[in-house]
Every structure is written in structure tokens, then in C-alpha cells.
Design a protein around this nucleic acid. Structure first.
Lengths: 346, 346
DNA sequence: ACTTGGCACTCACGCGCCAGGAGTGCCAAC
DNA sequence: GTTGGCACTCCTGGCGCGTGAGTGCCAAGT
């Protein structure tokens, strides 16, 4: 029995099921694909495939549908990522063109991904664990409070308003802040966020006693900012695509939406995918169905890849029903990732 | 024929239908409510109510369900907003307690509203059309670019990175920026955002020729920030509640989710509600079913109110199926609005 | 003038039934 | 190892029917 043909059968089943959303039978298979054998032969192959757990039938005397394991094999060995058409490439460029802000880039990207794949899209904000401090600005506001602004070299800005009423005299506030700003910048600028946080404690200890109160205040807030910047963020779009994408998923649609709203869950998911992304398959990593341990996310597949250039800043991807069109989805994710990386590099 | 009783019947129908999600008949009505008359009498009243368009029957020989018009009458004349229980009040306080950032407050608020009402929640960011400029910060970064930060008195911060390579010499950059910062602040600080934007043109014209290039650059970016700050933003949560809330809505669930993702649509909706909010009904305004002109949002009702103190800063509210529990929903919206206003005032 | 009980009528709904058909598994033959 | 044939399973859709909830109307009562 030819092993190759069995794989071809599996591929055909996946393709047909993805496009029709209906269990596919042996007869339909030989009609739609050039397999060169009769339905009976296919039936034998299908029986083996079912034994091995790659396909299953919803009920006796129905066609077969792929299992998670079947999709996995398909993705790993059978799928060739479809290249984007020139029209699609142009669409990506025009959609992403003209974004100025980092927020704007992320926002456009997630929308683009959603509309390209007609699924739910996820974009993680550029991770700052590798980012460093570009500048810290400190300025008095209205005499009683001060504004602290942290800018990272990835373009992200974090700010805090701090109350300095009790910490320092109003008259000397401006002077103290200016001095402190210079010293803070000297201490943390250029450093990685984590290192910068550590450097803060030294800074306070070396501050003259007159300014120690306000220095402590500032250091606390800045530490806060640094920690907040290290925290990951995600944005999503295209949730409405999920309801259209099929009734089978809509059974658990509620829990899927719940999971998507719980950004913490999403972040963990994305990070897990980052860890298992070993660079094969062009940097794309795919989670299929029950491979997502999170409850409510079985029944969905997630396709992500890193973006942001050789030093991967963060991840983006899409989430949809397990019976998604993997080749097309993977192509879209990869293409968008590349364009976004190019934009961020400039 | 007693007019009062007909209204009582309508109220009973709305209440029963909201709690059971099933058409309600005359017999069930007299059993569950003390109306003091026989089912036959109720039937007469129901016939009249149907003639007048307040209720309808899905098909002959089924019970009645309220129409949009019926809900409208209910909300306007029959609903008494239920007070929150002490437990709920406590829940609100603990949930909102400890929020520092403005973002954090908004985020917590929208989640709170969603979980309290078990519907989709919408919170508009504090509108800045009434806000004024607190401070503008301008600082060179890395010699070739500068950071512009705008802080408003409502606590919102907007920033831009601008390229100043061509505009000024590297040596004089710091000096130019410092001077410019002082002049910009003198010109716009304390002004309303709109006025500040107008003041910018004068500023550039009065700039010494040596710095005019960079001044123009800064003015452009600042104008940008001011415009962006005037732009409204909304956040949503609890979309997963919509799918649970009933199959009748789930027919159009896709278009509802679409509308919710399109923040522009949401903003227009919220602003319309703001305009028709004349302060009666305790500041609550309600849009029922087809009163929402936007396609895909018929079948849903929106309950909003202003928040932020006597000078209303923005709106918040919830969106759900027309057959929502209006008294409870309205109470929750009002209660949350009050707590948030109190927090923002501090 | 309103209310009430009675009564006939209307449909949606659930159930059982049945034929049709798609698809399978198995077997014997090639 | 492949193929045609054949019996079997079981989902699907259509039909008919009884049931029950609910209505509208009418005539009688207050």
C-alpha cells in the first residue's frame, strides 16, 4: 500500500473539507482530485487514516473530516504556503502606508490581518524586554505635581503624574526637577528596561539629602513606568468574522470571545507560541485545536509569527476555526509580518 | 375601559417577557400578577395594545411580545429604576478602587459595566473638547529628533516624535528647543484645545527667522496632537455576553460585532445619545431597537449616561438586546457613572 | 359600559414514520 | 494491491397527526 497516496488522500480531504465545510466521502474525492484510483481504494486508505487518528467521521455512513492530528500533519508536511497575489501585496502596502504613530501601525496591522484572512487577528505590541530607555523627561506641572515621561527606543511612551506637594518646596521645585532629570537620564539612558530599573536604587542613594524625598518619589514612579512598559499588550480585531466562519464554532463562540477579551490569556498563548517557534516553517508557528490548552480555545487554531526584523520584537497572527485555510492564512500572516517589520525598521 | 390597567398589562408583559424570553399569554399574566381581572379582560386590553402598536404576536395563537414602541413606553412611563443593593455598591467600589491611570480607570469601568449588566459595555474616553492644555514639553532626543508631549488637564497625554535633522543645527538644538518650549507654553498653556490650535499660527509668525524652520515643524506636530486629542475614543468590553443573551439577537450577531468594532460608528451613536439627553430620567438616555438608525444595531438597545461631574466629560453605557432588563440596566449604568465621576474628581 | 365564561378556531411544536440517498465496510474476483 | 458489487447504517427531509397554548368573538351577567 502506497504511503504517498495516503498522504495525498489526507491532503485532499483537508482541502475539500476546508472549502466545503462538509464531511467528504470517497466518491467526491476521486471526482475532484486526480488520484487515479477507484473510490473503493480510497475507502481502504481512509480506513487506515482513521485508524491512525488523522480523520474521523461525525457519524456512521457520513464522510470523513480531519482531526486535529490530521490538520497537524497537513500543516507540517503537506501544506505549501500560497504566495500572495500582486493585488494582495498592493492592498497590504496601501493599507499600511501612511501610518505615523506606533499605535497607528499596530491598529492598522490588526485590522489588515483580520480583513485579509477573514478571521480574528491578534497583534502583540512590540515587546520591550529587549528595548532600552531613550529618554526620561521630568517637568513640573502647576507647582504641586510633576509629569514623568519615559520614551523607549521602540517608540513607546509611558507617562505618570506624580504628586510632589509634600516632597519639596514650591520655589525650588523647578530646579530640583531639572537637576534630577539630568541625573536620571545619565543613569538610565541607553540601558535596557530591566537594567534601568535596577540602576534606580543606586541613584536614590547617591542623591543629596535635600532632594531625597522627591528623588524617591520619582524613582518609584519611574520604576512603575518601566515595569508597565515591560508588561505586554495585545490588540485584537475581526471578532465578527468568527461568527460568520461557521456554526460548529459558534457553539463555543461565547467562550472564544471571552478568551479574546481576556488579554492576559491571549498574551500567554502568544508567548507559548513564541517559545515553540524554532524558525522552521519560515518562522510561522501554528497551534491547532486542542493543542491550545486554554478552555474555550479548543476548536480554534492560531497562526502566528514574529515581526520587527531579525531581532523579533513581538508576534502577530490570526485565530480561527480549526478548519481554516492554512496555506492562505499562513501566507497572509507571513506577508503582513514582513511589511510591518519593514515599516518599523524605518 | 381603564387606561391605567392597560398600562399595567403592558408593564407586566414587558417584565414577564424579559425574564422568560417567551411570548406571554393572557392566562400566565393573571397568574403571575395581581391584576384582579379574568384572562378574557386581559385579552381585550391586549387587543387594544396591539392595535396601538405596543405589542405584537410572533404568529397567531401565540402570546404577545413588546414592540420597540412598547419598550419605549415602558422605559418612559412605567419603569422605576431599581436601586443597587449594598452588595452591588460595594462590588463597584472595590472593583474601581486602586485605579491610578486614566487608562486604568476607563478599562476597569468598562469591564465592571459589562459584568454588572451581563451585556456589552461602552465607555467613551473623557472628551477633551472642553479640556485645556496643561503643559507642553519639548525635548531633544539623540540629536536628530525631538519629542513633543502634550498634557491636558484631564490627565490625557499625547506625544509625537519629530525629525529635526534638517531644521536646525545639532549644536543649537537644545537651546532652540528650550526657548521654543517656553514660548509655546506661554502661548497655549491654559487654553482650550481648539483655541490653542489657533494660537499656534500666530506663534510661528512671531518666531525669529533663525528658528522658523523648527518652529514650523513643532507647530505642525503640536497641531497634530491637539487634533488627535480632540478626537474621541471609545473602549468596549463584554461582547461575549451578547452571544449568551439570546438566540434572537444571534441572527444578526455578526453585524452587531462589526458595528462594535467600528469605533467610528460607536462614537456617532454615543454622540447622538448625548445630544438627546436633556437631563430628564436622571441623565439616562435610552435608544431602543430600530431607533438606532445604524444597520445591524436594530434589535439592540443602548443605555447611556454622561459621567465626569456637573460638566459632563463623556458618556458610558451598555448595549444589549431590546428585551433587556431596563430597570436593572439603567440602575447599573447610573451607579457606575456616579462612582467613576467621583473617582475622576479626586 | 365593562367584565366574564364559554367555545370554536388557529397554528406552532413535537413525534413517529417512511422513503431517499450518501457513504461505508466487507468480500470475492482480478 | 486494486476493484466492483452488495448489504448495511444512519442522517435528512417531508408528511401527517395529535396536543396544547392562546386567541377572538359572542352572549350573558353586573
Amino acid at each position: 500500500m502506497s504511503d504517498d497516496r495516503r498522504l495525498a488522500v489526507l491532503r485532499a480531504i483537508v482541502e475539500d473539507y476546508v472549502s466545503s465545510h462538509e464531511p467528504v466521502g470517497s466518491k467526491a474525492l476521486v471526482e475532484r482530485h486526480q488520484l487515479g484510483v477507484s473510490p473503493a481504494t480510497i475507502r481502504n486508505d481512509m480506513a487506515v487514516l482513521e485508524d491512525e487518528g488523522y480523520i474521523t467521521q461525525p457519524h456512521t455512513s457520513a464522510g470523513r473530516i480531519p482531526t486535529d492530528k490530521g490538520y497537524r500533519l497537513f500543516v507540517d508536511r503537506l501544506a505549501n504556503v500560497k504566495p500572495m497575489t500582486p493585488a494582495e501585496k498592493r492592498a497590504i502596502e496601501t493599507f499600511l502606508h501612511g501610518a505615523d504613530d506606533l499605535d497607528d501601525v499596530v491598529d492598522r496591522t490588526v485590522r489588515l490581518l483580520a480583513s485579509l484572512t477573514r478571521q480574528a487577528a491578534v497583534v502583540q505590541y512590540p515587546s520591550l524586554s529587549r528595548a532600552s530607555v531613550r529618554h526620561v523627561e521630568l517637568v513640573g506641572v502647576g507647582g504641586r505635581s510633576a509629569l514623568l515621561v519615559l520614551i523607549t527606543d521602540s517608540g513607546r511612551v509611558e507617562q505618570r503624574v506624580l504628586d510632589v506637594r509634600s516632597a519639596v518646596d514650591v520655589e525650588t521645585l523647578g530646579v530640583s526637577l531639572a537637576a534630577l532629570r539630568t541625573r536620571v537620564n545619565a543613569s538610565v539612558a541607553g540601558k535596557r528596561l530591566r537594567e534601568a530599573r535596577d540602576a534606580l536604587t543606586d541613584l536614590v542613594q547617591q542623591t543629596p539629602p535635600a532632594d531625597i524625598a522627591i528623588a524617591a518619589e520619582v524613582a518609584a514612579s519611574l520604576g512603575d513606568c518601566l515595569t508597565a512598559s515591560l508588561e505586554e499588550r495585545v490588540v485584537i480585531a475581526g471578532t465578527s468574522n468568527l461568527v460568520k466562519s461557521g456554526a460548529d464554532l459558534s457553539l463555543s463562540l461565547g467562550s472564544v470571545l471571552e478568551a479574546l477579551e481576556e488579554h492576559v490569556v491571549l498574551l500567554r498563548l502568544v508567548q507559548e507560541l513564541a517559545e515553540e517557534d524554532l524558525g522552521e516553517r519560515g518562522g510561522l508557528s501554528v497551534r491547532i485545536g486542542a493543542e491550545n490548552l486554554h478552555l474555550g480555545l479548543d476548536g480554534t487554531s492560531v497562526v502566528t509569527t514574529g515581526y520587527g526584523g531579525e531581532a523579533v520584537l513581538a508576534r502577530l497572527g490570526v485565530l480561527g476555526p480549526t478548519r481554516m485555510d492554512y496555506p492562505t492564512t499562513m501566507a497572509a500572516v507571513r506577508a503582513v509580518s514582513r511589511y510591518v517589520s519593514r515599516i518599523l525598521a524605518s
